[in-house]
Design a protein around this nucleic acid. Structure first.
Length: 914
RNA sequence: GGGGAUGUGUCGAAAUUGGCAGACGAGCAUGACUUAGGAUCAUGUGCCGUAAGGCGUGUGGGUUCAAGUCCCACCAUCCCCA
């Protein structure tokens, strides 16, 4: 360090000008770009750090100060780690495909790609204005062919693989074809059933005889990307199919329209094959607990047993069986196998394939009628808890395998085909819905858990007792056991009898990916006489053509269906091109990997580069993506891992969610009188843009306030007074750095020594570093403000021009550099240092310098503060206790009696108990 | 209904994880200065009280020398899933 040099500059700058951020922020932003300061570090021997923001969906509204919060804080974080000597990857891109952009384009009668260029340019302008240090050389844009080409490439990987339950991983579909030719599904079926995969069966002989088309149809049941019939959620307003994840309370996520059920051929990703791994691997992630919980709930793993009930029915002829589902058994999944002895009837979903088989001739008509009306109802309506239970008796009976009891088989719409096996054993004493059903149709109720609370076995009870605590009764071998231990006992019992197995069941459904829309990644699939055929890697990209109309066709097909040149394919395969496009979730499920190698023209990414940079060390974005993007990305990562394209199984090691910034004004609910803050939105006209704030106070003040406003994860209303407050602080930093003698020292002589200044400096370094690392940005700024206050005190104490003073200023600027990069750079040069401060290291806290010579110890009597003493830090515990007892404050409250106890907490307090 | 989170001054909040509640900032009040500024500087600012002191972290209880922090019950608000 060159202190003499610094002093010289202090002299030269005696009449320093005022802090005017507008005069130099742009200058430095341009200079940093020219000098490539934000290019991704790649210095051998340095550790890597991948810091990523969720890439935004560019809209015409641009960024608000709410969006800026996310970006500013990760930028501070990235700049900090650069100064700590890390190779930092901090990229940005745009999630461009999707419905809102398309709808906007329809409204404005223009092409969405034109809008995309405008919107992304505006986003980048705003981000630059904030001083964000992204490596723009690595920018990706999901709607550009050099990006979506690789989305299609990954789609092909999914299409060309299947999940092998024996290896518990994805494998090439060609492996499966080879195995089918040799042995059929003989080795696969049992493992598949155990894993809950509903694979069809086939022998080698059948496979040999099958046509190409039949083979393709068969393989569809295995592929990780597949086309299948599906009752889909149809949004009548946007005229598009929406995923389960996009439906909230029966309404479409975007349009808000009530979704309808429609049977269509749709493309899916077989995410259910990964349910168990997606559930288990959550354990190793440093994610907010609530996001982990939400994913767990969404995957909805429940442990229990699968139990077979024999069907007793004259209609059944032996030799009827032709599929893997045995026609003479009903398979149910239950999380409460301990209540098997309380099953008094069974309920099938109206869509269950065995309904026809079990129905007796006499009941045929009522059953048919019921099945027909159930079809018209949505899942939500069918399973609503307040809904009156409906159902009909099939006339058939099943045999309960644990006690050989003959129980009636009913059908009812509250049982869904999509969950479990589509059939349940009804235990009315211990399940509320079964209870209501039994009450309505006068079916027997038998208590098997003698509970402590409401007893569902009571004929007059109004609700079931689903408690898991109590003693087992009426349950054969389980009698007398505690309910808590009887689940395992029951599973062992059915396993020994060979009538059931331990199993996990999942609520997760396959991921519906196709959209009948224009603005998305085209699927690399051609429909031929032999079925759906995938293009080869060399045929990519399938380019999205220009169209004149973006509206969905009346048949619900994509506008692409109307373009003959696109639809009719001659080479390399003759057929009709798939006109559905991929939902934008596909684009965002792998973009974080593309950043490792964004310009690669031969593959989505080089394996060495992606393995070097990933997984993402710190991923930051809104909590609204808890079960959509974050779950899908995890699945794609696992598929690419299974197929050997990457060597990591989880994409995001650490995840942090920022709280939402709300509009500043308080609103009052006219009905409840409750006060609340609105979200910022253009339609409400309450958006505050970074542009207006920067215009007034500069980017550094905005960045500082984004950090300071609240704890990062807490939602908080914007405070109009906040930015000026931070600006005042920056002003003070400016003055104390350039002109420490300008202000008249205050009359009250401050008590601070050079040694103490040094201690405060190092304590601040320690605190600011730790706070940034733990995302406590608000307290990091508070510590810097305190440090600034201490510097004014030190100035008043006459410490300007001491070595400790220059060290303190030097540390201050380095610590401020990540927070207020423009000002830090400007001051750094003005006091005579060399460009650039952002290539300097963050200061290190010296533990010795942090140690205090004297400590203040609080003196309490019976837990109340009565006095305090200042003692040498190395004084013995006993001496400190003695001094504490001798204080006036203590003596006044102790009285004559000797203290009963004296507690000393090292370096903090003495508590005298009397 | 199930799951999760949060509750601290006038406001945003902090509290080294069981050890001085309210750091830091905003706002407000009083004063100083003046090149009258969106300044700057100083002092004060949880409640009651002149003071000594007492009370105080959603409510009620408990553990502890000591509780915002741990335990039990409840209330309110927000989010997610139904």
């Amino acid at each position: 360090m060159h202190f003499a040099f610094c002093t010289l500059h202090f002299q030269l700058n005696k009449m320093a000008d005022k802090y005017k951020p507008q005069e130099f922020e742009k200058k430095w932003q341009d200079r940093w770009v020219v000098d490539g300061l934000h290019r991704t570090g790649d210095i051998p021997g340095r550790p890597k750090m991948y810091i990523l923001d969720m890439f935004p969906y560019p809209s015409g509204d641009g960024l608000s100060v709410g969006h800026a919060r996310n970006y500013c804080l990760t930028d501070v974080y990235a700049r900090y780690y650069r100064m700590r000597g890390y190779n930092v990857l901090h990229p940005m891109g745009f999630d461009a495909f999707g419905l809102p952009a398309e709808n906007e384009a329809i409204k404005r009668q223009t092409n969405p790609s034109v809008l995309n260029k405008q919107f992304t340019a505006n986003y980048k302008r705003q981000m630059d204005m904030l001083g964000l240090s992204y490596d723009w050389d690595r920018r990706v844009n999901s709607c550009e062919p050099d990006y979506y080409r690789w989305t299609q490439w990954i789609f092909l990987r999914l299409f060309n693989s299947w999940y092998d339950p024996r290896a518990d991983k994805a494998r090439a579909i060609s492996d499966l074809e080879a195995e089918l030719a040799e042995r059929g599904t003989a080795d696969i079926s049992e493992a598949a059933e155990r894993a809950g995969l509903k694979y069809p069966v086939c022998t080698a002989a059948h496979w040999a005889l099958a046509s190409k088309k039949q083979r393709n149809e068969f393989l569809m049941y295995f592929r990780l990307a597949y086309r299948g019939d599906s009752a889909v959620n149809w949004d009548p307003v946007d005229k598009v199919v929406v995923a389960n994840e996009e439906v909230e309370n029966g309404r479409s996520w975007r349009s808000g329209a009530l979704v309808e059920k429609k049977i269509l051929k749709q493309w899916f990703f077989r995410i259910t094959a990964y349910a168990n791994r997606l559930h288990n691997d959550l354990d190793g992630l440093d994610w907010p607990a609530r996001i982990v919980t939400m994913q767990r709930n969404w995957i909805g793993r429940s442990d229990g047993a699968e139990v077979q009930f024999k069907i007793e029915n004259e209609n059944l002829k032996m030799g009827d069986s032709e599929s893997s589902v045995s026609n003479s058994h009903l398979v149910v999944f239950t999380t409460r196998p301990d209540t098997l002895w309380g099953a008094t009837f069974m309920v099938l979903s109206p869509e269950h394939p065995l309904v026809e088989k079990v129905t007796t001739t006499g009941q045929n008509e009522v059953v048919k009628a019921y099945v027909a009306q159930a079809k018209t109802q949505s899942d939500e309506a069918r399973t609503a808890t307040d809904k009156e239970k409906t159902g009909v008796f099939t006339g058939g009976y099943a045999i309960n395998p644990v006690n050989d009891e003959r129980i009636p088989i009913w059908i009812a719409d509250y049982v869904l085909m999509g969950y479990g096996t589509g059939a349940i054993m009804a235990v009315p004493a211990h399940d509320q819905r079964d209870f209501e059903f039994a009450k309505k149709f006068n079916l027997p109720i038998r208590t098997v858990v003698q509970g402590t609370g409401v007893n569902g076995g009571d004929a007059n009870a109004t609700e079931a007792n689903n408690a898991r605590e109590g003693v087992m009764v009426n349950s054969g071998p389980l009698n007398g056991l505690q309910a808590s231990e009887s689940v395992d006992a029951a599973i062992q019992f059915v396993e020994q009898k060979g009538v059931g197995k331990r199993r996990a069941n999942y609520r997760l459904r396959d991921w519906l990916i196709s959209r009948q829309r224009y603005w998305g990644t085209p699927m690399p699939i051609v429909h031929t006489d032999d079925g759906e055929v995938a293009l080869g890697d060399g045929d990519l990209p399938v380019l999205l053509p220009d169209v004149t109309s973006y509206s969905t066709t009346l048949t619900g097909e994509s506008p692409l269906a109307g373009i003959d040149e696109f639809v009719n394919v001659e080479t390399p395969i003759k057929g009709r091109r798939e006109t559905d496009t991929m939902a934008a979730w596909a684009c965002s499920s792998w973009y974080f990997s593309r950043f490792a190698d964004p310009k690669n023209e031969n593959e989505p990414f080089d394996i060495n580069k992606v393995n070097e940079w990933l997984p993402v060390d710190t991923y930051v974005g809104g909590a609204e993506h808890a079960v959509l993007h974050l779950l899908y990305s995890r699945m794609w990562t696992k598929v690419l891992f299974d197929l050997g394209h990457i060597n990591f199984v989880e994409p995001f090691k650490t995840l942090r969610n920022q709280g939402m910034i709300l509009a500043p004004g308080v609103k009052t609910d006219p009905e409840t009188g409750r006060q609340y803050h609105e979200k910022m939105s253009k339609s409400k006209g309450n958006v505050i843009t970074p542009d207006e704030v920067i215009d007034e106070h500069g980017a550094d003040a905005l960045r500082g306030f984004e950090m300071f406003i609240s704890d990062f994860s807490q939602p908080v209303p914007w405070n109009l007074q906040g930015v000026p407050g931070v600006r005042r602080w920056l002003d003070r930093v400016w003055r104390i750095t350039l002109d420490p003698t300008e202000d008249a020292p205050s009359k009250a002589k401050a008590e601070i020594t050079a040694r103490e200044l040094r201690r405060v400096t190092h304590r601040t370094i320690d605190k600011v570093g730790r706070d940034i690392e733990t995302f406590s940005f608000n307290t990091a700024v508070a510590a810097l403000m305190e440090f600034t206050n201490a510097l004014y005190k030190a100035r008043d104490a006459g410490l300007v021009d001491t070595i400790e003073w220059y060290q303190a200023i030097d540390s201050l600027l380095r610590m401020i550099a990540p927070v207020a990069p423009h000002m830090a750079e400007e001051l750094w040069l003005r006091i005579g240092n060399r460009y650039s401060i952002h290539q300097q290291s963050f200061p290190f806290a010296d533990p010795d310098a942090m140690k205090a010579d004297e400590i203040t110890v609080v003196v309490q009597v019976n837990g109340k503060v009565r006095d305090r003493i200042t003692v040498p830090a190395d004084l013995s515990d006993d001496d400190i206790k003695q001094q504490a007892l001798a204080t006036d404050g203590a003596k006044r409250f102790i009285g004559d009696a000797p203290p009963r106890q004296v507690v000393y907490v090292k370096g903090r307090l003495v508590n005298v108990v009397v």
